[in-house]
Amino acid sequence: MAEEMTGGCQCGRIRYRATVDDDEAYLCHCRMCQRATGGVSIAFKSIAKTRVAWEREPDLYRSSPIAERGFCSTCGTPLTFWFPDAPHMDLTVGSFDDPWRFKPTSHSGSESWHRDWLDTSPLPASRTDENPNVVRRWMDKVGKLPD
């Protein structure tokens, strides 16, 4: 079932609306994505370019001879990956305002994955609001924790 979803960068300068048909997403582990994000992988939602409307177009970086990446030059948020000649693009799952609906259904770039980072669920976990150093800093600066 099609649903309109919104998203954008961390600072709010770049915003989009996307019509999403399903919950499928994927993780890319290729070295280019690792370098572009500084992470071991990135979560993407593939979507037809015609189903994305930008309030403000992302800044573009020609990351290779065959692809471009959209990002915000103010806050640095990675937003997209696409081949200019393809009808689909990838939006970063984390840039959606409500990313919780998406489920990973596949991996790409598995030649570069870090196997130890694939399932970290057994590791100890803590919430941001349980870290007194982080809470104090947020409360001192803005009087509340971030959304």
Results as ranks from 00 to 15, higher is better:
R35E: 12
M5W: 03
G39T: 03
D59H: 08
F81R: 06
A53G: 14
C28D: 06
T105R: 12
T120D: 07
W113D: 09
G39P: 01
S73N: 06
V52H: 03
R101K: 04
C9S: 02
M139N: 08
P146G: 04
C75D: 00
T50P: 02
S73W: 00
E130T: 13
P87S: 15
L79Y: 03
Q10L: 05
M89Y: 02
P87F: 13
T105M: 07
G7D: 00
R35N: 13
E3Y: 11
W54H: 04
R136S: 07
N133M: 12
W117F: 13
G94K: 04
R101A: 08
R115S: 14
C11G: 09
T80R: 01
T92W: 03
Q10P: 05
S121W: 06
A53W: 09
R51M: 09
W100L: 11
E4H: 15
Q34D: 03
C11R: 01
G70A: 06
T92V: 02
D23G: 08
W82G: 07
W117Y: 15
E111S: 14
E4S: 13
G70K: 01
R17Y: 04
V20M: 06
F81S: 04
E55F: 03
K49M: 07
S41T: 07
Q10R: 09
G76K: 09
I14T: 10
I14S: 05
I66Q: 07
P65S: 08
T105K: 08
E111Q: 10
E130Q: 12
N133G: 06
R137K: 15
T37S: 10
P146W: 00
T19F: 04
C11S: 01
D59F: 04
G109N: 06
